[in-house]
Write a protein that binds this DNA or RNA. Structure first.
Lengths: 341, 341
DNA sequence: CCCCGGCTGGTAATCGTTTGCCAGCATGTT
DNA sequence: AACATGCTGGCAAACGATTACCAGCCGGGG
């Protein structure tokens, strides 16, 4: 692999000149520029990002850690992040923590060792992931996305679960449903906790209580399939699911059991993942892919302000830090056709 | 951030000793070892992978490029790869080419610049992706996975599309279906091309021809929804879909149109993605997540045998290079319950 | 004519590791 | 006693870029 030295030699100039031409860091005579570019071209020179990172102390890379890439919510998020970073000339270093706190901690360390300029993490566990996340605060820019841990003072970007599930509950109540049950994930992660709280708060607002204790498993189709069998069908007229995957599983199981949706029971999801579109009857869900944002809290994630921009390119570092994404209103009568309000 | 020098100073030894202790590259006296470890611990030393990579000329990182991470087939693949690499102490640098050859080329260059030890790519376009892939051959270990380009002599790991779709067609024909149509993606990518060829070959073997020309769009639910409307229902009794996403879309559209599956028409998928489980009636599909492998061709991807191991850790470099994954037989009567043969 | 400032391009230090080579020392062999 | 051997630990040179600093040159102003 050709180095800057080879290029310099072939062009008959010094390495500094080559560097200056290639990185446009200082003006160089047109003649030298020409020679350098020709030599680089001829040698098929590719610059070495590792050497550059060592010298400049920035890698041009952002690390991202998600709990499970096969949960369809995350690929959508990753795609958006990657596209945005690409515009800033940053690469994304994506890792999967495999829903395992130990793996998560290891991956996080690997990212730091690789000198990423910032970390975007959706921590797996509300409490068990906290030490690893907290340890990074002050070391480098770090933000949490979608999920977050208890106690770590970092920026956070996520959907407003409270507003989203309030919408869901209001929607069901407005259509006469009074006996609801919540099917979601174990409360070890932030989303599960926040969504349960949101549902309970919304019920309370309507003077209701859940028809049955929450059924808690995992944010997966399989759990939806299993949970449906535990729903007390004579006591319930609405099943609020923690996300779309669960809802799709529930729908499938209900249909198999001959339960009519939404006549006997209504089912709602959350996220509006692509596969939500194949549900039959159509799934009532709340879209998370909106573009409007709301600032709702603040904090500071970094003591390295010079690099903070890299992690949160769209706003000044350490200002209006935490953001809460307002869910799109995209509710339809469960089982009816989909409408956009 | 503490460096090896800080540790050396605090421990009262030289940097070489610290390096030797930390990387276990040579025996060191127990006493020195103890001092070094204590000092490292005290300073919270984290080693700098960038410096290490520069010096050793290997980054301990494998780059992976997939056409679209939100296609559920790829996350499953990525998870498997990441788990395997972790066992070798390698990190995965995952990128999405966004089904865009230009983005793909750019990302590929970024990976090379970051000195990845090897590249795993599922190229987007059968022909247009070829130059970028070919340019890397001989530069560093590179393998193609799932999809591949025309002409590049690299290792390749993928499902045996011919065998898989032969199974599908045989299955349908054995159940009396004679008038089949193929719904798949545009032929710009390898999978689409290979699967169309496979279906046609299988039909020919049975002395049949397709009931209708293939409907080609994208490997997505939306295309399945749209394509279903173009199926000539009176001329067709079986719809062979290029993957599960399409099949799920087709099923959804047929149900909406009141077509009975499988009575009026049978539908098959391919991949057995998690969401295939929610199809109603159950989707007939072929599982790609098997663990058995078959070697079927060979080639050599690298002129750097010392690092080739990194890219294909499970077998000696440049031997029995291309592998073809044998699809699991997991066929059931379309609409009937799922069986495993 | 001298000096000053701007513009170019080169020299060399630096980023944080790894590692070849060598020196010192203890031990074992003849 | 002389010498070979093995084990430790340190010195310093890389790896491939960036960049502070300097030197030379040229032109303009005093």
């Amino acid at each position: 692999m050709a180095t800057i030295h080879d290029v310099a030699e072939l062009a008959g100039v010094s390495t500094s000149t080559v560097s200056r031409v290639l990185s446009r860091s200082r003006a160089v005579q047109p003649e030298s520029t020409r020679k350098v570019l020709a030599a680089a071209e001829q040698l098929g020179y590719r610059y070495n990002a590792v050497a550059r990172a060592l010298r400049t102390q920035k890698s041009g890379t952002i690390g991202m850690l998600v709990p499970q890439i096969s949960n369809p919510f995350f690929p959508a998020l990753v795609e958006a992040v990657e596209r945005r970073l690409a515009r800033e000339g940053l690469e994304l270093f994506l890792c999967d923590s495999q829903r395992d706190v130990a793996v998560e901690a290891r991956r996080l360390r690997a990212l730091v060792e690789r000198q990423v300029d910032g970390v975007i993490i959706s921590p797996y566990d509300l409490t068990a992931s906290a030490p690893a996340v907290t340890a990074l605060v002050g070391q480098l820019p770090i933000i949490q996305v979608d999920r977050r841990v208890d106690g770590a003072l970092t920026d956070w970007v996520g959907v407003d679960d409270a507003a989203g599930f309030a919408q869901v509950v209001d929607h069901l109540v407005a259509r006469g449903r009074r006996r609801l049950v919540f099917v979601s994930s174990e409360l070890t992660n932030y989303s599960a906790r926040a969504r349960l709280d949101a549902v309970n708060a919304a019920l309370r607002r309507h003077g209701l209580t859940a028809a049955q204790g929450p059924l808690l498993g995992a944010f997966e189709v399989e759990w939806g399939l299993a949970a449906a069998e535990r729903v007390e069908l004579d006591a319930v007229d609405g099943i609020v699911c923690g996300n779309d995957a669960i809802a799709l599983g529930v729908l499938r199981a209900l249909r198999k059991a001959g339960v009519r949706v939404p006549d006997d029971v209504a089912v709602t999801g959350f996220d509006d993942i692509p596969f939500a579109g194949i549900a039959d009857p159509p799934l009532t869900t709340v879209r998370q892919h909106g573009t409007r944002w709301r600032t709702s809290a603040s904090g500071c994630s970094s003591n390295r302000p010079d690099t903070a921009r890299a992690a949160s390119p769209s706003h000044p570092p350490c200002r209006s830090a935490s953001r809460r994404r307002r869910p799109d209103r995209r509710l339809s009568d469960t089982g009816g056709q989909r409408i956009e309000e």
